[in-house]
Design a protein around this nucleic acid. Structure first.
Lengths: 187, 187
DNA sequence: AGCTTTTAGCTAACTTCATTAGCCGCATCT
DNA sequence: AGATGCGGCTAATGAAGTTAGCTAAAAGCT
């Protein structure tokens, strides 16, 4: 029986891909093992269990989101930066709904947690966006939470097919981004 | 063996209460049966299975949310109505996180579905709020989606303890509501 | 190279849960 | 009282996560 050459990153990566395909609730240890050409218990040599696997997927997703948003913001400022950041965030969630779903409800154990680190980086990207507006003091935190709620809410609702009527979703999103931009500039 | 006198509403109601206590993922058929003083298979006389149970909880939650938001809007208009609706929505989600979680990812089967009906009523309440602003045409739908994303995003993030720093969450919410109000009035 | 040590993968077994099949007594209606 | 239907029960099945313990492949050492 030749070795499969797995490690934690390979297992978590395949788990993330599988979660995007079949949904986070459809992600089963047996299915993942099949996908990797291995028997189920072998996965436990690389991850401590399903919870640990999902935490790993969440950390990966947050890392990738921060990467995408951070990259989109590079070289832009003000309204452009806001629009680019929001679009990058939404695109990531819609293309990777399973991964992103793994991040919901995860609480980092400490400042060392890779989950916390990736979260900080994502936060930093949005903070950079806000520097293009004239906001100071505690309003920065409020505005960050507002942007996060808006992006998170829209993207998760879209991923869940929760927008029913026929009005174009892309248009709604652009409208929403412009709305936030106007509001932030008017402070 | 005396009868327990259950019916669908009792099972769904107890399921919703239990979901609020232990979280939707912690809601198990066995636990619910215990809570009702009955053996697990007996539940299947009232609900078709766990999926059906959760659909029932979702319909109940949406109905209650529509009730709360609709009631809060009564007799108010403009900024007052918006603030009251948003506060009622947030309060419901934070007090009933399990119930509300059941609504996520549910797609109504048809216009007859109680889920769809309750959703329509909730939508109607927010539509009524928007009547206090001067918005017309397709912008109404965009604004509705914006408000929904904002409320849904904030409330679910709060319920998941996703706001880490120490800035007061109530203040952020009030700030966010005022932000949306200013933006809508400036159209 | 040969020996040792580590470790990734395996089989077998256990547990928890959802679900189904089939039985039986309570409650109501005539 | 007797018939009937419905709500509860026990028993059994199957899927999924997890653990224990074995074995052989890889990696390291002399």
């Amino acid at each position: 029986m030749p070795r499969a050459g797995l490690d934690r990153a390979a297992v978590v990566g395949a788990g993330a891909a599988l979660a995007d395909e079949v949904g986070l609730t459809g992600l089963t240890m047996g299915l993942l093992a099949d996908r990797l050409g291995v028997r189920t218990p072998s996965l436990y040599k690389h991850v401590a269990g399903q919870d640990d696997l999902i935490r790993g997927i969440a950390a990966l997703a947050l890392h990738e989101t921060a990467e995408a948003v951070g990259g989109a913001v590079q070289g832009r400022a003000g309204s452009d930066a806001l629009a680019a950041a929001a679009r990058a965030f939404r695109a990531f969630v819609v293309e990777h709904p399973g991964r992103y779903a793994a991040t919901i409800g995860q609480e980092p154990s400490g400042p060392e947690d890779p989950l916390a680190e990736a979260g900080e980086r994502l936060l930093g990207a949005f903070t950079a966006v806000l520097r293009g507006y004239e906001i100071d003091g505690p309003a920065v935190n409020h505005a960050l939470r507002m942007l996060r709620s808006l992006c998170h809410g829209f993207a998760t609702l879209e991923a869940a097919h929760a927008f029913q009527w026929s009005t174009d979703i892309d248009q709604s999103f652009e409208w929403l981004v412009a709305f936030a931009d106007r509001g932030l500039r008017a402070m």
